[in-house]
Amino acid sequence: MAQHPTGHSHDAHGDSHESHGSLKSYVIGFVLSLVLTIIPLVAVLNDIVEGTAARVVLLVTAVLQFVVQLFFFMHLREEKKPRWNLMALILGLVIVLTIVIGSIWIMTYNAVA
């Protein structure tokens, strides 16, 4: 952990919140998001993929789009160390997945019609 013994060096103070995004990164992000929205629309609504394969396509494109937005819109990559925001996000996502998958698993045998 980089420690600033005096603790008062001003340059150390978090400009972590400055958004460093450029027009280019926003445009790339936007285009990628559009593509990742159109792919599942075309593939699933036209029945190019079906059943489990369709679900996989849907979820993969959704997750990819999430990642795109994190990187190109929310500038998660530019966070300074220590990366508290990233750590908090990962932990939060682990819990979200636990809630969703755990509920599905536990409720499998408890379903009501």
Binding site: G102, S103, I106, M107, N110, A111, V112, A113
Partner: peptide, 9 residues
């Protein structure tokens, strides 16, 4: 179609 067990979960 509600499921009280979901609440407990």
């Amino acid at each position: 179609g509600g499921n009280p067990m979901m609440y407990i979960n």
